[in-house]
Amino acid sequence: MNQIVAALDAAWRILLIGVVLGAGLPALFSFGVRAMAWGTGGEATNHDEGTLPPPHPVGRVIGIAVFALVVLVVLLGLSYIVAHGLGYNLVFNGGLPAFVPR
């Protein structure tokens, strides 16, 4: 019985963080794709027959910024795996990630 409680206790934490990171990352990426499409204009967006939307440079800037953020998150994930293997733990000090020896 205690084992089930322990498993469920871990489960809701994983679910919560999983939703934030695991659903948040592709959502963020989608904003990037959408901004880039708006920035590129033309055939990148769905549009009415005969009227090609003009490109918006701002969209490209936003898109690139968002993609850079996604790359950062992936890199953080990679460094977590590397650090974990080498015996370090990831902690967040006031929001900033840091690695401390276990």
Binding site: L15, G18, V19, G22, A23, L25, P26, A27, F29, S30, F31, V33, R34, A37, T40, E43, A44, T45, N46
Partner: peptide, 21 residues
């Protein structure tokens, strides 16, 4: 659950973007 939420968000956010793009 996580993948389902992620997929719903992705398709909601990218509405209006050309599919091939």
């Amino acid at each position: 659950i996580v993948a389902m939420i992620g997929t719903k968000l992705v398709f909601k956010i990218t509405q209006g973007v050309n599919q091939r793009y």
